[in-house]
Amino acid sequence: MALLEVTNLGISFGGLQAVSGFELEIESGHLYGLIGPNGAGKTTAFNMLTGMYVPSQGNIVLDGVDITGKSPEFISKAGIARTFQNIRLFKGMSVLDNVKVGMHNRVTYSMWHGIFRDGVFRDRERQMDKKAMDLLDVFGIADKADYVASQLPYGEQRKLEICRALASDPKLLLLDEPAAGMNPNETLELRETVRKVRDDFNIAILLIEHDMKFVMGICEEITVLEYGKIIAHGDPESVSNDPRVIAAYLGGDDD
């Protein structure tokens, strides 16, 4: 059985059917792409997968657990983490704390342990510090652990956001336009990072991206959305030669 199975997923806002008949099957340890012109419903699909939106139709099953319409808290615990198109870091917090807050439901202790600073508190905090520093080290930003998150350069903010998502030990990582706003060098570096994450953490990654070179170069399977419907699905080679995909891009909004 696949790690994530999405069947006939759809959502409508008022009379507008934003996404319909969305299907997806994801296996552990692989890289998937979700592409489509602007407004195709890619981010909406992400929002349904992470519980931000409640789908109107369909089913989402993660590792045998039905997560359809569950709360973001439930889904995060079940094992889906995400990053955002417009980076959403906790800007006032340190880089280290950003990662530690990502472990919110993985390393836990009650409020009172924190108030009385007892052994449990110290033990769990040490555990979190270690795990967070190791994660930051993987992304090469461990030396900036004490920076306030907003002080990081753009590329490293992207990395930190991925770090924070990984801190929750996800089975599936959703990246929403990870290369947006990056220069070619940063994009190249990001490609290595994403591959490394997949291999080192052995998780599945699903990413939305407009940078076609990036998507084609890294993803093993690509799903193409247009007006909320899947118009193509397959390996990069077949998708990029699909006349419907080419029409969707050239006929629609260029990006």
Partner: peptide
């Protein structure tokens, strides 16, 4: 305080 949506997404 810093970002409600992100906080929600990491399961807070």
């Amino acid at each position: 305080r810093d970002d409600e949506i992100a906080a929600k997404s990491i399961g807070i």
